[in-house]
């Protein structure tokens, strides 16, 4: 017994290496997931009851920001022709934060906004009254390319997320990563959204250039 203790081993004990490798193996087996579950979330409107006529929504024309995309992938933004969607996010943001004719609630909302957002209110009479009223409407043809539609939809989302994140002092990236699982992130999420609903309407495409 004593003799074997005294004898120096000339090898490092590598027995635990196997355990480490096993741990790694199990780690990979458990955590490997497909990384493609990312995308742009959208909630479709509920099914239309054929017996109930669609609600007649009276909205001032100035509160709707119209984007039409035709089968040639050309854009018509508020009656103005555009070739590409570039820069549209800025227009969306200006439209949402216009505060042209705020009511009492909207004025109170305006006062809670950080100065950087307040300064963006252009108060144009022919643009939206306040964020609660503003609606972005995207209409396509059946022949419109999906990629172009998604680009415009993406920019509309960007405008809203920019506003939300600026309001709570995060970057847009950080705001979108909020899960809402725990209290703190839920509170931040709600604080960003409060009073500024994400109103992006996607109209049924009309039958031009498609099948």
């Amino acid at each position: 017994m004593a003799r074997s203790k005294n004898r120096m081993s000339n090898e490092i004990n590598a027995g635990s290496m196997a355990d480490i490798a096993f741990l790694l193996l199990i780690f990979f087996l458990v955590t490997t997931t497909i990384a493609s579950d990312k995308g742009i979330l959208n909630v479709l409107p509920p099914k239309q009851d054929p017996n109930v006529p669609p609600p007649d929504i009276k909205k001032n024309e100035r509160n709707i920001f119209n984007v039409l995309i035709n089968a040639n992938n050309d854009l018509l933004v508020e009656g103005e022709y555009r070739r590409t969607a570039a820069g549209l996010d800025k227009d969306f943001k200006d439209f949402i934060m216009n505060f042209g004719a705020p009511d009492e609630d909207a004025a109170a909302l305006y006062n809670t906004l950080p100065a950087s957002l307040q300064s963006q209110a252009q108060r144009k009479p022919d643009s939206s009254d306040h964020p609660g009223e503003a609606v972005i409407s995207i209409k396509t043809n059946r022949g419109t390319n999906y990629a172009v539609f998604l680009e415009v939809f993406d920019l509309a989302k960007k405008a809203y997320f920019d506003v939300y994140s600026e309001r709570v002092g995060l970057t847009s990236e950080q705001y979108r990563a909020l899960t809402g699982d725990d209290e703190a992130s839920k509170a931040l999420q709600d604080k960003g959204k409060e009073g500024i609903p994400m109103a992006i309407s996607i109209a049924e495409p009309d039958k031009v250039g498609g099948n």
Partner: peptide, 11 residues
């Protein structure tokens, strides 16, 4: 009535 839709997309 499956109204939650994710348009899969890459960065």
């Amino acid at each position: 009535d499956a109204r939650k839709v994710l348009y899969a997309s890459t960065k």
